[in-house]
Design a protein around this nucleic acid. Structure first.
Length: 881
RNA sequence: GGGAGUUUAGCUCAGCUGGUUCAGAGCAUCUGCCUUACAAGCAGAGGGUCGAUGGUUCGAAUCCGUCAACUCCCA
C-alpha cells in the first residue's frame, strides 16, 4: 500500500475513535481485574472546552490509557455539573433577550423547564469536544449533578447532616452578590486591589445629656454611603486624643442619629484618624464589634444593592451612585474634611466578575466544618491521600483545614437542589426528604398539617454541595450505598484538577468521602498548573488570548495538541501555551510517519529467514536502550512526571531510533533487508508505539495497524505492556562510544570543510580493535569512509582527532589547513591540562583523601588517569603535524 | 499584613539525600547539506560567575542565614 507523504490526522482520528467505541474499549464493568478509576472534574454544563480543560483531560486520558495497557479495568467517568449561578444567569439572560420574559414572571417550575431545555441544547457540546481530543471516557456513564438519583442523593445528604446537627440555619454576615441576588461562599469571592479613596468626615459630639459640646470627631471611611447605617463610633481605649469622650455620643450626619462612642482595642490608632465608624450591617468587622458591644443593626441596603428605606436618604439609589451623592451632601454641609488616595482590596463575585460583593446580614444555611475537616485533614497528613506535586500544596491544605470556617450553602436561586426544609405557617420548620416525611415529622411533634399548609424553602443549594459527592454518586454510592459498583470502583485512583479548586472541591470531597464511606475518595491528587499565554498572562475572554481548541485540533491534529500541551507542562507548574509546541508535535507525528514509510519500504525486499536469531550491534544496543527508557518511564509515571516521560520518549524515538538505530540497520541502496533484522525492527517499532500510545493515541494506533497485518481485536489501545527486559550496561557504553566517534568524525569533516560527498580513509589507533571491527560497516557508512585501517602510529597528512582514549586519522583529498588543526588540538590540550591540575590539586589535598568517600577518591584517580592518557594522545598527534 | 513558592543558556524548564568532564534538555540562533523515510528534514556548532551576599564543608547549582525581584494563596 502506498503511504501518503505526510501523516493526515483527521482521517485517523475519526476512524480510530469510532473503532474503539464500537469495540467497547472505553466501557467498564466490575470484574476480577483491579480497577483503575478516574472521575472527571465535572465541567460547567453550559461551558465549552478551554485550554485548562484540555490540559486536564489530556492528563487523565494518559493515565487511563496507560492503566488500561497495564492490566487494569479502567473506568473514566465523564459528566458535568449544573453550575447554578452561571447557568441561571445565562438562562435568565436568554429568556430576556430571546423571549422577552423576566424571571419574575415565571414560576419555579416554568423556569426550571426552560433551564433544562437550555441544558439539553448546550450541555452536550463539551462532550463532543472531549471526544475530539481522543479521551477514552466510558460514555455510558455520563453523569449530571441534577440527574434524578443525584438530586435525591444531595437531598439525602442534606437531611442526614441536618439530623446530625452538622447543618444549621442562622443569621450571619455573608457575601452577597447584588447582581445575582444570592449569597456566595467565602471561596466564591475574589479580591482585587483597587485605588479607592478614604473620606474624612466630621461627626458632632454630644454629652450624655444630649447637649452639643461644640466638639467634633473625624472618622475615615471608604464607604461614606453606609454612614446612614452607623450605630457607633469606635476608638482605641489607649488613644489619648479620645479618652475624654467616654460616655459621649456622636451625631451621624445626614440622618442625625445619636450613636455611642465606644472603646475597643480592635481600632488601630495609626490608621486614618484613629476613629472608626461602626456599621454592623455592612462590614464583617463592624458586625463583630456590634455583637461584642451589643449595637443596633441598621441595614441600609436592599438585596439589589440600592439604598433601602432604612437609609432615610437617597432611597432606591444604587450604592455607588449614592456614594457620590452622600459625598456631595457632606461637602455641602462642610462635614467632609478631606479626601485621601487609598489602595484597598475589594471582593468581587466569582460568577459576576464586575460585581462588587456586599457584606450583608442574612439568614442562610451553613455546614459546620470543624468536625468534618478533622478526618479529611488526617487523611492527607497521614499520606492516605497523596498530593502531587510534593508538599507544595500540603501546607495550604493544612492551613485551610485547620482554620476552616462554616460553609454557607444556600443560594437564592432556582437552578439547583431545592433546600428540603418545610415551613409551617407559624414559622417552625422540619427538614425532610419530601413533604410527606415533613408532615409525618410535624405530626410526631403534635402538629398536624397538610401539604398545602407547608411551604418549602425557596432557596437552592450551592453547586459544590452536590459536587463534593461526585466520586461516590457517579456510582450511586449515596443513593444506593453498598451497590456492586461503588464497592468495586471506590475509592478512585487519581483526581486530576486545577490547584485553584483545592478548597472548593478537593478538600470537601475528602470530607464527604470520609463522612459517608469512611474512606478517602481517591488515593492521589494531581494538580495541574494554570494555562497562560506565552507572555505569561492568564487566558481570559477579555484578553482574547484563549485559542479555539477545535480549530487547533483541525490545524495540528489531536495528537499534536496533546503533545504540545504535555511537553510544556511540568507537573504542577503553570503552562505557557505556545503554538510552537504544537508544531513540534505535528513534526513529531510526521517523523514517525516517515520512519514507518522507510520500514515499509524494506518489507517488500527481505532476504533470509525471519526466525533466525540476528546478532547485530545496533539491535543489541537498541534493545538495552529501549529497556532503559521503559524502566525510566515507569518511574516517571509513578511520580506523575508525565512531561518528562514524554520527553524521554521523544528523544528515544527521534534520536535513538530514527537517527541512530534505523541508520545503522538500513540496507544499502537497493539492497535487501535481512529478514531477522526486519522482524526485530518491526518489533521495536511496535514497542515504541505502545509506549507513546497514551500520549498520542491516534497516530500510534494507525502506525501499529500499518506495521503489519493484525487479526481482529489486536488493537494497540488494549495491548498489554510487558516487563522491561535486561539492560546491558556494557552494550549501552559501546553504543555511546560509537555515537561519539561518529559525531566527532563528522564534526571534524565539517570543520575542515570536507564536502559530504567526499569519501575519506579512516585510520584507527585503538587498544580495543574488536569493538570497532564489529561496527565497521555502519561506521564507514556514517562517516562516509571508503576504507577503515588500523594503525599504531600517527598517519601523516591526516586530520587527527581523539575520542575517549582512541586516536583517529582521517585521510582526505581536501587540502588541509594544518594551522587550524593545530589550534584545535592545542585548545583541547590546554583544557585537559587545566582539568588535570584541578584533579591533582584535589588528590594532593590530604583532607580530601581522608574525608571523602573512597569511591569519590577512586573516581578522581580515574579522572587523572584518563586525562593523562588523552594528553599523551594529543601530544603525540601534535608531534606528527 | 500572614504564609508558600520561584530565580540555572535568548525562551521554557531538568538537575533526587553535596563528589563522574556537572553546568544539562527542548525550542530559538549560527554553519554546511535537496544524502534514494522525512527540507515539517539531515549533519554539526556556539551560548550560562547556576538572582546577590555571607556561612557550613576537603568540596556547594545542591545545605544554612540575610537581601532583592517575581508568582500564588489567605486575611
Amino acid at each position: 500500500m502506498e503511504l501518503s507523504k505526510n501523516f493526515t490526522p483527521a482521517a485517523a482520528e475519526g476512524k480510530w475513535y469510532q473503532h474503539w467505541m464500537d469495540k467497547g474499549y472505553f466501557r467498564s464493568k466490575p470484574d476480577n481485574r483491579p480497577p483503575f478509576t478516574i472521575v472527571i472534574p465535572p465541567p460547567n454544563v453550559t461551558g465549552v472546552l478551554h485550554m485548562g480543560h484540555t490540559l486536564n483531560e489530556t492528563v487523565q486520558d494518559i493515565l487511563v490509557r496507560r492503566a488500561r495497557m497495564s492490566g487494569y479495568n479502567t473506568c473514566w467517568v465523564p459528566g458535568s455539573d449544573h453550575a447554578s449561578i452561571a447557568t441561571e444567569a445565562k438562562v435568565v439572560n436568554m429568556l430576556k433577550t430571546e423571549k422577552g420574559i423576566e424571571k419574575s414572571q415565571l414560576t419555579r417550575e416554568e423556569f426550571l423547564k426552560y433551564a433544562f431545555e437550555w441544558k439539553d441544547k448546550y450541555g452536550g457540546i463539551i462532550y463532543s469536544q472531549i471526544k475530539k481530543l481522543g479521551c477514552s471516557c466510558d460514555w455510558d456513564r455520563v453523569t449530571f449533578t441534577m440527574d434524578d438519583h443525584y438530586y435525591q442523593a444531595v437531598i439525602k445528604v442534606f437531611t442526614d447532616l441536618y439530623s446530625k446537627g452538622l447543618i444549621y440555619r442562622g443569621a450571619r454576615m455573608i457575601n452577597w452578590d447584588p447582581k445575582a441576588k444570592t449569597a456566595l461562599s467565602d471561596e466564591e469571592v475574589q479580591y482585587k486591589d483597587i485605588n479607592g479613596k478614604l473620606y474624612h468626615v466630621q461627626y458632632a459630639i454630644t454629652d450624655s445629656e444630649n447637649n452639643l459640646t461644640g466638639e467634633s470627631i473625624t472618622i475615615a471611611t471608604q464607604r461614606p454611603e453606609t454612614i446612614m447605617g452607623d450605630t457607633a463610633i469606635c476608638v482605641n481605649p489607649d488613644d489619648e486624643r479620645y479618652k475624654h469622650l467616654a460616655g459621649h455620643y456622636a451625631i451621624v450626619p445626614l440622618v442625625n442619629r445619636r450613636v455611642p462612642i465606644i472603646f475597643d482595642t480592635y481600632v488601630d490608632k495609626e490608621f486614618g484618624t484613629g476613629a472608626l465608624k461602626v456599621t454592623p450591617a455592612h462590614d464583617i468587622n463592624d458586625y463583630n464589634l456590634g455583637l461584642k458591644h451589643n449595637l443596633e443593626i441598621v441595614d441600609t441596603l436592599n438585596d439589589d444593592g440600592t439604598l433601602s428605606t432604612a437609609a432615610g436618604v437617597f432611597i432606591g439609589e444604587d450604592r455607588f451612585k449614592a456614594r457620590k451623592k452622600v459625598i456631595a451632601a457632606l461637602d455641602e454641609q462642610g462635614l467632609l474634611v478631606k479626601e485621601q488616595e487609598y489602595t484597598t482590596r475589594l471582593g468581587y463575585s466569582e460568577r459576576n466578575p464586575d460585581t462588587v460583593v456586599e457584606p450583608r446580614i442574612s439568614t442562610q444555611w451553613f455546614v459546620k466544618m470543624a468536625e468534618l475537616a478533622k478526618p479529611a485533614l488526617d487523611a492527607v497528613v497521614e499520606g492516605n491521600v497523596k498530593i502531587h506535586p510534593g508538599d507544595r500544596f500540603l501546607a495550604t491544605y493544612k492551613y485551610w483545614m485547620e482554620n476552616v470556617k462554616d460553609w454557607c450553602i444556600s443560594r437564592q436561586l432556582w437552578w439547583g437542589q431545592q433546600i428540603p426544609a418545610f415551613y409551617a405557617p407559624d414559622g417552625t420548620f422540619e427538614v425532610a426528604q419530601n413533604v410527606d416525611a415533613a408532615i409525618a415529622q410535624f405530626k410526631a411533634k403534635g402538629a398536624t398539617y397538610t401539604a398545602a399548609d407547608l411551604r418549602q424553602d425557596e432557596d437552592c443549594l450551592d453547586t459544590w454541595f452536590s459536587s463534593w459527592l461526585w466520586p461516590m454518586e457517579v456510582f450511586n454510592g449515596i443513593s444506593q450505598p453498598d451497590n456492586e459498583e461503588i464497592n468495586y470502583y471506590y475509592p478512585t485512583n487519581v483526581l486530576v484538577t486545577g490547584q485553584d479548586i483545592i478548597f472548593f472541591w478537593v478538600a470537601r470531597m475528602i470530607m464527604a468521602g470520609q463522612e459517608y464511606r469512611n474512606e478517602k475518595p481517591f488515593s492521589d491528587v494531581y494538580f495541574t498548573g494554570m494555562v497562560r499565554d506565552k507572555q505569561g498572562r492568564k487566558m481570559s475572554k477579555q484578553l482574547g488570548n484563549s485559542p479555539d481548541l477545535l480549530e487547533l485540533i483541525e490545524r495540528f491534529g489531536a495528537d499534536a495538541v496533546r503533545f504540545g500541551i504535555m511537553i510544556s507542562s511540568p507537573a504542577g507548574n503553570d503552562l505557557l501555551f505556545d503554538e510552537a509546541a504544537l508544531e513540534q508535535g505535528s513534526k513529531f507525528n510526521n517523523k514517525i510517519w516517515n520512519a514507518l514509510k522507510l520500514v515499509k519500504m524494506w518489507e517488500a525486499n527481505t532476504t533470509g529467514d525471519a526466525n533466525t536469531a540476528v546478532d547485530h550491534f545496533a539491535i543489541r544496543w537498541f534493545e538495552s536502550r529501549l529497556n532503559e527508557v521503559k524502566t525510566q518511564i515507569a518511574d516517571q509515571f509513578t511520580d506523575f512526571k508525565l512531561s518528562e516521560a514524554l520527553k524521554a520518549l521523544y528523544s528515544l524515538i527521534w534520536d535513538d531510533f530514527c537517527s541512530w538505530y534505523l541508520e545503522w540497520v538500513k540496507p544499502g541502496f537497493e539492497q535487501p533487508c535481512d529478514a531477522g533484522i526486519y522482524a526485530k525492527t518491526v518489533y521495536f517499532f511496535e514497542e515504541l508505539m505502545q509506549l507513546l500510545h497514551p500520549f498520542m493515541p491516534f497516530l500510534t494506533e494507525e502506525v501499529y495497524q500499518l506495521l503489519k497485518e493484525r487479526p481482529a481485536g489486536d488493537d494497540l489501545i488494549i495491548r498489554q505492556y510487558g516487563a522491561p527486559g535486561t539492560i546491558d550496561a556494557k552494550m549501552l557504553a559501546e553504543g555511546q562510544l560509537a555515537k561519539e566517534v561518529i559525531t566527532s568524525i563528522r564534526d571534524s569533516r565539517n570543520k575542515h570543510q570536507i564536502k559530504p560527498k567526499e569519501e575519506i580513509v579512516l585510520h584507527i589507533d585503538t587498544l580495543q580493535e574488536a569493538a570497532f571491527k564489529q561496527i565497521e560497516g555502519m561506521l564507514s557508512k556514517q562517516v562516509n569512509a571508503k576504507a577503515i585501517n588500523y594503525t599504531k602510529e600517527p598517519v601523516a597528512g591526516c586530520i587527527t582527532l581523539v575520542v575517549q582514549k582512541d586516536k583517529f586519522y582521517l585521510g582526505t583529498e581536501t587540502v588541509l589547513d594544518q594551522g587550524a588543526q593545530k589550534d584545535q588540538l592545542e585548545k583541547d590540550l590546554a583544557y585537559l591540562q587545566g582539568f588535570l591540575v584541578s584533579v591533582e590539586k584535589k588528590l594532593s589535598n590530604e583532607k580530601f583523601v581522608q574525608n571523602a568517600k573512597p569511591e569519590a577518591v577512586e573516581i578522581e584517580r580515574n579522572k587523572k588517569k584518563d586525562a593523562e592518557a588523552k594528553i599523551a594522545a594529543i601530544t603525540e598527534s601534535l608531534k606528527s603535524l
